[in-house]
């Protein structure tokens, strides 16, 4: 029984990260109909930014409330700028080109970032994994039985931060003027432009928002797994994409549910079946969903426009 609860906790923790990253995928897909393949790598860059700030702050400062806030702000702000830069110079010129052109560009950016960060000259980090500083000093928050289940303080804090980010995003998309503009662009960006919505600015802001979320997810990921490495974005990004597709790409609550679902299913495959098949789970899920219900669990079925 204890291990079942433990698996649930593990799965939720992994799923939260997938969900946060999936949100970025889903938003960008919503407004641009582009699979932003580089999203996971933007997350990696953000995490390395956080790593640099944390190491720069040093031991006592990095785990103070102010220090943690600074780490999150710098990483998320930096990533927002990176997202803006990528959108402005790589995606915007291709907006009216065939969709595949943008996808290839995205793959190119993903490769440039993930392998560029593996270089070990200049200020670049090099390929070896690094230990992420404990910016939330681990403490046992709840202990059940004879230590059969232990819940740590950072697990609770991470979950709270993730929930907070999700709720804020949901409010932004459905309750604010900007959110309405975003949804209008997503619905039809030409009409939106005719209605006086500054499409370029909305898309740029969406990108910044998604990238900032990715950085936040990256930091939570690094707190959870205590390690950062240049290729970390590749797999997390792919799995988050799968999560977004499961939930119905373009759908905000769908991405969250998809992420949590994927995290839990992976965890239970590892726990009760064979761990060597973990990486096959996400992709079988993806193929299955696309074949049976391409619009995902929460997506609405739309006819392909000609």
């Amino acid at each position: 029984m204890g291990d079942l609860v433990q698996h649930l906790i593990n799965g939720l923790a992994a799923g939260t990260i997938y969900a946060l990253v999936a949100l970025g995928y889903t938003m960008v897909y919503g407004v641009l109909k582009l699979i932003n393949f580089a999203h996971g790598d933007v997350m990696m860059v953000g995490t390395f930014g956080a790593y640099a700030v944390a190491v720069g702050l040093g031991r006592p400062a990095q785990s103070s409330l102010l220090g943690v806030a600074a780490i999150f702000l710098v990483a998320m702000g930096g990533c927002a700028l990176l997202g803006l830069f990528i959108e402005r110079f790589a995606y915007r010129p291709l907006r009216e080109k065939p969709r595949l052109t943008a996808l290839i560009t995205a793959i190119g950016i993903s490769f440039t970032l993930s392998y560029g960060f593996q270089l070990d000259f200049g200020p670049l980090p090099g390929a070896a994994p690094r230990a992420f500083p404990e910016i939330i000093p681990p403490r046992e928050w709840l202990v059940f039985g004879d230590r059969t289940v232990v819940i740590w303080n950072w697990q609770v804090i991470s979950l709270l931060i993730a929930l907070l980010l999700m709720v804020a995003l949901q409010a932004l998309v459905y309750r604010s003027r900007f959110g309405r503009a975003m949804r209008a662009v997503s619905f039809d960006h030409r009409t939106a432009a005719l209605m006086g919505i500054p499409v370029d600015r909305v898309i740029a802001l969406t990108f910044m928002l998604g990238s900032a979320l990715a950085a936040g997810a990256g930091i939570l990921f690094a707190i959870k797994d205590t390690v950062v490495q240049p290729l970390m974005g590749l797999y997390v990004g792919l799995k988050a994409f799968v999560a977004a597709v499961i939930g119905g790409i373009g759908n905000v609550p769908g991405a969250v549910v998809g992420g949590l679902l994927l995290g839990l299913v992976e965890e239970f495959v590892v726990g009760y079946s064979s761990s060597s098949w973990r990486d096959a789970v996400a992709f079988s899920f993806l193929i299955l969903v696309l074949l049976v219900r391409p619009s995902g669990l929460f997506g609405t079925v739309t006819a392909e426009k000609v």
């Binding site: 433990q6 593990n10 992994a14 205590t226 970390m232 590892v270 064979s274 761990s275 060597s276 990486d279």
Partner: peptide, 20 residues
């Protein structure tokens, strides 16, 4: 007997199963 892949960073699933 549990497995992981080079480059993974989350081993909690495997370790929980081992603990069982």
């Amino acid at each position: 007997v549990e497995t992981y892949n080079l480059g993974d960073s989350d081993f909690r699933g495997q370790l929980t199963a081992i603990k069982r």
